[in-house]
Every structure is written in structure tokens, then in C-alpha cells.
Write a protein that binds this DNA or RNA. Structure first.
Length: 315
DNA sequence: CGGTTTTGACCAGCGC
DNA sequence: GCGCTGGTCAAAACCG
């Protein structure tokens, strides 16, 4: 059986997805609430107790994690390779702000054109390997892409295309600290059930085959655009000395190679850990979980092997 | 025809 | 007040 790359890279991230804070020093400042009782095992990985597991995997978050759930025999199992957990304080703070807003909110149905950045909606931030992006069963439509200051990679914006009124949003950004890792941020919740099948594939193929005329033209456009973008450390996919296309192909090769190493990494991660502090792989997922991953990987290999200059067009 | 991606422009929040 | 930045819009082009 093939072991998928699903290291439990739990990251505690606030509303910002700036890569500079994710792993280097940012975690050191996190004030974990005492009753959560989970400890930072190193900069990347967090072990957590059974108590914490109960608290975090509440119904509310479960909804947001749905894209990475696999339902088998009535049992929900996380499909994502990585789980990011928002500190309880942030959730409390956001709830408090929501309550305050509701208390003074007018009864009119006015909906601002742009949502306020300060009182943003709840977010769930996941750090996923490229493989796991394909396990998202929701249908997403890309509506924007922006270069992000401090990151060599742009951020892609997706909205749910299954339902017109669905406010669910998704942001995908390649991690600048870990090659082949994507930071996925989910905002708002789906107001409908998960589609049994994705929407039409029309318009989605052009970006999946780098050799197509379209994609090459797209790359040219991106190269031109990237030339106008400067990050503090001067890194763009263009001035690295190779085209975005080449960059991504090499990255995906690396992902495949890394898959072989990750099983050992996960093993080492859990070995020697205190049972009370860590949830073992077996505790979180039973054997059927791996069976489900095989299908996902097959699908990924055939449909996600190619890419556009930055991210896959859809997941 | 109905869906998608791409991409420049626009807008609002934030920090100084 | 101003500039920077991130998030969204919308037109054009594309695809099955």
C-alpha cells in the first residue's frame, strides 16, 4: 500500500498568512490556553491531547474541515495531511466581536460590497501538501490572484461554485518555507450540502497542460507581470532564473520524492511521544483511511500532474 | 451555451 | 491624508 504524504504538520496561525510568522518565532509567542493542554513539540509540529482534540474538532470546525473529510460507514475521517489549529483565544475574540456586531447591527439587509478586514470571518488555515489539495470535494471557482508581499508566490482566491449564494471562500498560497506545501485558508461556510460531483470541467483544462498554447501564453503574461512585482528579498518565480513552468514541474517532482521520506518522518514524530500528549495515527484514523487515500492519489496523478504558472486551476 | 481562468482595475482597511 | 496592501470585481478569452 502506498503511504501518502500526510505529515501532521499542525500549525497555529492567526488571521495573517504571512509566511514569516508561520514557523520562525511566531509560534513562540503563542499563549496557549491552559485547558487546551497541548504542547509545541518543535517549530513545525504540535502534539495535542485528547482534551484538545475534543475541543477543537467541534461541530463548528467540523463543518469547515468537511472538504478534507472522508465519510466511510458513517465515520468521519480527516482527509487532509495537515491540520492547522487556530488558538482558542482568537476564536473567542472573534466570537466576542461577532456578538458585539450583532448587538449593534441594524435590522436592514444591507450587505457591504467589501467585507471589513478587521472583523474578518472565522478562518481555518490548513497547511497541505499538493496531493491533499485534490482531496477537496467542493467545487471552487478562481476569481482572483494576487502577489503577496514577502512571498515569492502569489495567492489565489477561490469561491464556491456549487451554489450561487454560497459565501465559502478559499485562498491557496504556496508556502515559502516548505517547497510543495500549500497554505489553504477557508473563510465562511458552505450554505449547502457537498456536491456529489463537481461542476462542468469547461474552462478548466487549459491550465492543466503546460504544453498547450494557452498555458504558454499565460506563462508569458505572468512573467511580464512578475517583473513588476518585487518582494523584500527580491525573489520572484521569474528572477530565480527559470520560468514559472519549470519551477512548478521541478516542485512536483520533489513532492513525489518526498513522499517516500514522509512515512519515516511521521513515524519518528510519534515515536517516543507521551501517549497523553499525542494522538497517534491509529487513534485519529483507522486503517480504512489509507484505502481512501489510494483513490485520491490515483485521481491526483491523472488530473493534477500538470499545472499553470502558480497553482492548479481548480482542486 | 454554460462553465471556467486570467488579469487589470477598483475599493477599503491599515499603518505611518 | 497618503501610500501600501489584500480582497474582489468584471470583461475577455477560453474550453467541452
Amino acid at each position: 500500500m502506498m503511504i501518502m504524504d500526510w505529515g501532521l504538520q499542525a500549525v497555529v496561525i492567526g488571521s495573517s498568512t504571512s509566511c514569516s510568522d508561520h514557523f520562525h518565532g511566531g509560534n513562540n509567542n503563542i499563549d496557549f490556553s491552559p485547558n487546551l493542554d497541548f504542547q509545541e513539540s518543535d517549530h513545525k509540529y504540535l502534539s495535542f491531547s485528547h482534551e484538545m482534540k475534543k475541543e477543537f474538532f467541534s461541530d463548528e470546525l467540523e463543518e469547515l474541515y468537511k472538504p478534507f473529510y472522508h465519510v466511510d460507514g458513517g465515520q468521519n475521517m480527516l482527509m487532509g495531511s495537515s491540520i492547522s489549529l487556530i488558538p482558542k483565544e482568537i476564536i473567542k475574540e472573534e466570537k466576542r466581536e461577532e456578538e458585539q456586531q450583532q448587538a449593534v447591527a441594524p435590522t436592514s439587509t444591507y450587505v457591504p460590497k467589501y467585507k471589513k478586514r478587521k472583523n474578518e470571518q472565522k478562518r481555518v488555515v490548513l497547511q497541505l501538501k499538493a496531493d491533499d489539495l485534490s482531496s477537496d470535494k467542493w467545487a471552487w471557482r478562481k476569481y482572483g490572484q494576487k502577489p503577496i508581499k514577502g512571498s515569492p508566490y502569489p495567492r489565489s482566491y477561490y469561491r464556491c461554485s456549487s451554489s450561487k449564494g454560497c459565501l465559502a471562500r478559499k485562498q491557496v498560497e504556496q508556502s515559502c518555507t516548505e517547497t510543495g506545501t500549500f497554505i489553504v485558508t477557508y473563510t465562511a461556510e458552505h450554505n449547502h450540502s457537498q456536491p456529489t460531483r463537481r461542476n462542468s470541467l469547461a474552462g478548466t483544462i487549459k491550465s492543466k497542460f503546460p504544453n498547450s498554447k494557452n498555458t504558454i501564453n499565460s506563462h508569458k503574461k505572468n512573467i511580464v507581470k512578475n517583473e513588476k512585482i518585487s518582494s523584500p528579498h527580491g525573489l520572484t518565480s521569474n528572477n530565480l532564473g527559470f520560468s514559472p513552468e519549470t519551477l512548478m514541474i521541478d516542485e512536483f517532482r520533489e513532492i513525489e520524492i518526498n513522499q517516500e521520506n514522509d512515512h519515516e518522518e511521521i513515524k519518528n514524530m510519534f515515536e517516543g511521544s507521551d501517549e497523553n500528549e499525542c494522538v497517534s495515527i491509529q487513534e485519529m484514523f483507522d486503517g480504512d483511511f489509507f484505502a481512501g487515500l489510494e483513490d485520491i492519489h490515483d485521481g491526483f496523478s491523472s488530473s493534477f500532474g500538470c499545472n499553470n504558472s502558480t497553482f492548479p486551476s481548480s482542486f
